[in-house]
Nucleic acid binder design. Structure first.
Lengths: 193, 193
DNA sequence: CGGGCCTTTGACTGGTTTCAACTTCTGTGG
DNA sequence: CCACAGAAGTTGAAACCAGTCAAAGGCCCG
């Protein structure tokens, strides 16, 4: 369904039927299986990805082969390697599917076309970036201010759907702790700590 | 000088004399002394701040009264509590001057006026947000992937001016380590480690 | 000269990581 | 339907890293 996207955008601008048609034509539907890559580090990120159904993640792999998750994306969210997508430089992130997923892809040309053809699209994209900026700012703030326990509780509270659907060691890789530490912490929380 | 701003923007759009005049009229010049607040947590952030000369920082204070620095801003940079400025909600950040500084303030009305009156302003703001988003993403990535030593070296390498001008304990508060740890680490680095 | 800010340093403490072992669960193929 | 491999979660012990706290000294500015 592109409907979710239309709904979100309707909060900012009203699209004509023609514009909706353009938007539809620019979004490339794609189904992926669990574990399937959408992007690998080193490749140039060609698409911004909207999740209609399922769940993706973006992550880096450090020199010790440890994965660090930058973002999860479930229904209604977008994901990509923004830097690579915007600049055309090789990506530093991997993106893959945590569940079988239904996606819509937008490539660079499509993005430019939307910006050119639809007045108000600049604003939609600007507002989207503002929201994402603030989300990142919150995360930095949490990493600086809060203990691991606080960060876990806050995350679980804010995104209960993600905690339920995503393996625990990935949550750990998102929060920046080892899987063992998160396991022990949850045990302690469960016993009323 | 508003010149710096004009130069940056010239990379994106060409302003007419009239538009330059509007831009000038919207930017409120302000001089501040070292230690002077521009914003305190709890107040609503009324301005985006452009630094013409000097150095500011934005930071939060946690429940133990410890300061955590989100951003430094030197000549040519902008700073504010983006969330508060955009939404009108009370700020979570403090902003103050690390040096005597010359600033230009833009309030919400001014921002809206620019967006309304100057075609292409949406794009300027969108590109600015994109850059800031990527800066934040890099920082999150560094916090997840890199050791404290790596983060310090990377920061010192990327922003040598800031390391030179800003007290060391503030660098520590930016990197997320105690002042003691940073001191010890620098000592070790100096002795060829 | 005095006070405040800043940096350094030592000893102690505690939280996290690491590593390995063991268990469970799931999906796949025989 | 069972066997097996891979993925996930838990747990223990040991080692390590960084935080805390307090004290001392340096430096700048009024």
């Amino acid at each position: 369904m592109v409907d979710q996207l239309f709904q979100d955008m309707a909060l900012t601008i009203t699209l004509t039927d023609q514009e909706k048609e353009l938007l539809r034509s620019v979004l490339i539907p794609k189904s992926v299986r669990k574990r399937q890559y959408l992007l690998q580090a080193g490749d140039v990120c060609q698409h911004a990805i909207f999740v209609a159904k399922g769940c993706l993640r973006s992550y880096t792999i450090d020199e010790n082969k440890v994965k660090h998750i930058f973002q999860f994306a479930i229904e209604g969210w977008a994901i990509s390697d923004m830097y690579s997508f915007l600049t055309g430089e090789p990506a530093k992130y991997y993106v893959d599917a945590i569940e079988d997923s239904e996606l819509y892809l937008m490539d660079r040309a499509g993005k430019e076309e939307l910006l050119d053809q639809i007045p108000g699209m600049e604003k939609v994209f600007r507002l989207t970036m503002e929201k994402s900026y603030i989300a990142n700012q919150r995360r930095i703030n949490a990493m600086l201010n809060n203990s691991i326990k606080e960060r876990y509780l806050s995350f679980a509270n804010t995104y209960p759907q993600i905690v339920q659907r995503v393996p625990q060691h990935m949550i750990a890789a998102y929060l920046g702790v080892s899987a063992g530490t998160l396991s022990r912490m949850r045990k302690q929380l469960a016993s009323g700590g």
